[in-house]
Amino acid sequence: MLTKTGNVDGAAIKKAIEGRDGKLLSSFYTDDALVRVIDRNNPPSRPREIRGRAAISTFWDDICSRAMTHKVDTTVAEGNNLAFMQACAYPDGTKVYCAAMVELKNGRIARQTVVQAWDE
């Protein structure tokens, strides 16, 4: 949850991701936030870019609606930056691992970069 000051923190991220709560996750972002996803299909030279809270909400709703588990392993905060590691698993055993770096602005997520790897 957001603290009384409205700041996003590691505990809030962990609760929302592990609870598959896309609505809560979306509430953490600024209106003009940017999420960049880097993976096999979206290399660093052409990352997937998701712009604005509405598009980010659709992104999280899709992820949270999937039959899979999410576990946030580690969160680290320093100044206006928050990083976390996330391990996911589908019922068929396929695993996904993500590392995310978040830049906060006034306690909300303004920029996020996600690097993820999937079992193949």
Score class of each variant (00 low, 15 high):
93 G>H: 00
88 C>M: 13
26 S>I: 02
55 A>H: 01
107 G>A: 04
7 N>S: 15
68 M>R: 15
99 A>C: 11
34 L>W: 02
92 D>M: 00
5 T>K: 11
72 V>R: 09
17 I>N: 12
84 F>E: 00
4 K>G: 15
89 A>R: 13
116 Q>Y: 14
47 P>M: 04
24 L>R: 04
1 M>I: 11
19 G>R: 00
68 M>V: 12
63 I>V: 13
77 A>N: 09
77 A>R: 12
118 W>Q: 14
16 A>V: 07
7 N>E: 15
95 K>E: 12
36 R>I: 02
74 T>F: 15
84 F>R: 02
61 D>G: 08
13 I>H: 05
60 W>E: 08
105 K>A: 07
25 L>H: 03
44 P>D: 03
36 R>L: 08
64 C>I: 06
66 R>C: 05
98 C>G: 12
87 A>T: 13
60 W>N: 09
103 E>G: 08
51 R>C: 06
114 V>T: 08
36 R>H: 07
74 T>S: 14
95 K>T: 12
26 S>D: 02
118 W>P: 05
78 E>W: 07
78 E>D: 09
7 N>R: 15
107 G>H: 03
21 D>R: 03
107 G>I: 03
38 I>V: 09
8 V>P: 14
63 I>C: 08
99 A>R: 06
73 D>N: 14
60 W>V: 11
15 K>Y: 12
55 A>C: 01
79 G>F: 03
58 T>Y: 12
63 I>L: 12
28 F>A: 04
9 D>M: 04
3 T>C: 14
112 Q>H: 04
72 V>Y: 06
80 N>K: 10
13 I>G: 09
46 R>A: 15
87 A>P: 02
67 A>H: 12
17 I>T: 14
93 G>R: 02
59 F>A: 02
88 C>H: 06
37 V>N: 08
44 P>H: 06
4 K>P: 15
26 S>P: 07
95 K>A: 09
108 R>V: 00
